[in-house]
Design a protein around this nucleic acid. Sequence first.
DNA 1: CAGTCGTGGCA
DNA 2: TTGCCAAGACT
Length: 322
Amino acid sequence: MPNHMITRAKSVPAPSQTRYLHEQITSWFADNARELPWRAPRCSPWGIMVSEFMLQQTPVVRVLPVWEQWMQRWPTPAALAAEPSGEALRAWGRLGYPRRALRLHSAAAAIVGRHGGQVPGTREELLQLPGVGTYTAAAIASFAFERPETVVDTNIRRVHARAVTGHALPAPSLTSAEMKLAAALMPRQETKAWNAAVMELGALVCTARSPKCGACPVRERCAWVAAGQPEPHYVPKGQAWAGTDRQVRGAMMAVLREAETPVLREVLLGTVDLVDHGTGHAVPLTKLRSLGASDEQLARSLDGLLADGLAETAGSGVRLPN
DNA sequence: CAGTCGTGGCA
DNA sequence: TTGCCAAGACT
C-alpha cells in the first residue's frame, strides 16, 4: 500500500459512517430521551454527581426515589458532609453496594475541604475523589460541566461493540482499543448530548438481552446485524450470590439500617432470633445460619463490615457509623 | 488483573 | 423457577 494513503485502524469507522451514527443517534435521542431529574437543566453538579454514584451498577428505576429524597435532605455536599456516614448508609436504603454511600459521604467531605464546597469540574480533580473512577469522572465532567470528555460505560461499550465492531457483546473488561474507538467517535460539538444519547440507546434499545433492533436508529448500518447477529465470543461470568459473604453482609446491613439502637453481636451472628416488632418478621440471619452459613462465615462477614467502615462497635453491640 | 462488593426485576 | 444483569470502583 502506498504510504501516502491515509490508513485507519480496522475497528475505527469511516467518516461517513461516523457522520451517520451521529445524525441517527442524536436525532433518536431528541425524540426518545427519558426525562430524568438529573438531566434537568437546573440540576446542580452535586445532583448529577449523586446520581452517578447511585447509578453505578443499579438500574434507573430504583435510583429515582432515593435520589429525590437524598437531594431534598442534602442539597449540597456540605449538608451531607455535616452528618455521620451512618445517616448516608441509612438513606441509601436498599440500593446495594453500600460502600458507595460511604464513598459519596467521603467525597462530599473532600469537596468541602479541598474545593470550597463546590463539585470540581475537571476529570483530574474528580478522579481524586473517593468512589470516582474513570467512568464517573468523565460523566460528571461531561454532564455537569459540558467538558469534551469521552464517556465510556457498559451501555456505550455495547453499542460500539455491535454497531461498529460487529460483536454481540464488548470484551469482559474495558480495553484500550475500545477507548480509542470511543474517542474516535466523539463529535467536535455537542459532546454531552452525544455521550448521553449513546448511553440512552444502550439502555433502552441496544440492551444486553433481547435488543430491540426493530426500533434502532442505526439498524441499517449496524455491523452486528449485517453479520447476522453472531453469538457472544465468550460466556459471561455469572455473579454468584447464594452462600456468599455478600449475601451475609447484605443481611447484616439490612438489620443495622432498621435498628434504632445498637444490635447485639449475637443477633448479627445469627445465634439468637430477632423479631421486628413493627412487622413481626424475623430477620434473615438465623435463617441464613440454618441454610448453612457457618459461624466462621458470619464472623468473617461482620468483621468485614467493621473493617470497611460500614458498621462500628457500640458497647456490646454494633451499629451504623455515628 | 481477577475477585469482591448488594439488590431486585425480568426473561 | 433460576440465572442474568444494571450509568463501576477498588485492590
